[in-house]
Amino acid sequence: MDPAFDCQRCGACCASFRVSFYWTEAQGEHDPRSLGVPAALTEPVSPHLLCMQGTHARQPHCAALQGRVGESVGCTIYAQRPSPCREVMPGDAQCLKARARHGLPT
């Protein structure tokens, strides 16, 4: 991977977009030990959609993101992250758009 697109230094995508996903990706109240997104880090968008807490804001910033965008970041639920987070790839169109929003090189 190009060092300019090191996700652990960037984090721009986590602080640029609403992260919406189907409710079944979250941990169920019936089984909080499931491997889904922790329900406490989600908020409802519609009857069938949730989003990561903090991403449905005017200035999105995922509640699971730790650190400083553009310097050193990490996802506190990386193994449990929802599908939209798994789909963004370093250097793809969404990545470049997020980096530009934060004034990072594209």
Rank of each mutant, 00 (worst) to 15 (best):
V45E: 02
T42V: 05
V73Y: 01
T24Y: 09
H102W: 15
G67F: 06
P32A: 07
V37W: 03
D31Q: 10
P47F: 03
R81W: 06
L50M: 06
E43K: 11
Y78Q: 10
H61C: 09
G54E: 08
Q94D: 01
G103P: 01
F17G: 00
P90T: 01
L49E: 13
A57S: 14
A79V: 09
A57P: 05
Q80L: 09
L65D: 03
A15P: 07
E71C: 07
D31V: 12
S83V: 13
R33N: 15
A39K: 08
M89A: 07
L41W: 06
Q8L: 08
A4V: 03
L50C: 03
P32C: 07
E25P: 05
A64S: 14
A40M: 12
E25V: 02
R18C: 13
V73W: 06
H48A: 02
C85I: 04
V19S: 08
C14V: 05
E43Q: 15
F5V: 04
L41S: 05
C51A: 15
E43F: 08
A40C: 11
S83E: 09
E29S: 02
Y78C: 10
F21W: 11
P32F: 05
A40L: 13
P32R: 10
G74D: 10
M89Y: 01
R9V: 07
F17Q: 12
P44N: 08
C95F: 00
Y78G: 06
G103S: 03
R99Y: 06
R99G: 08
T106P: 10
G28I: 01
F21A: 04
A93E: 15
R58V: 12
C95W: 00
P32I: 03
G67W: 13
E25D: 02
G11D: 00
A40E: 15
A98F: 10
P82M: 01
T106D: 09
T24L: 14
E29Y: 02
E87A: 12
G74W: 15
A79Q: 11
S34I: 09
M1H: 08
S72Q: 14
S20L: 10
V45I: 14
S72G: 12
Q8W: 11
T42S: 04
L35K: 12
T55F: 12
L41C: 13
S72V: 11
C85R: 06
R18P: 15
A40N: 03
W23D: 06
I77R: 02
C62F: 08
F17V: 10
P32T: 10
A93D: 13
L35N: 13
L50E: 04
E25W: 00
P84V: 09
C14N: 11
P38F: 09
E71H: 15
P38W: 07
A26C: 04
T106C: 11
Q8G: 05
D6H: 04
R68A: 15
R33D: 14
G11S: 07
A40D: 14
A63S: 05
S20P: 03
P44H: 03
A12D: 03
T106R: 13
A57D: 15
R86K: 10
G28L: 07
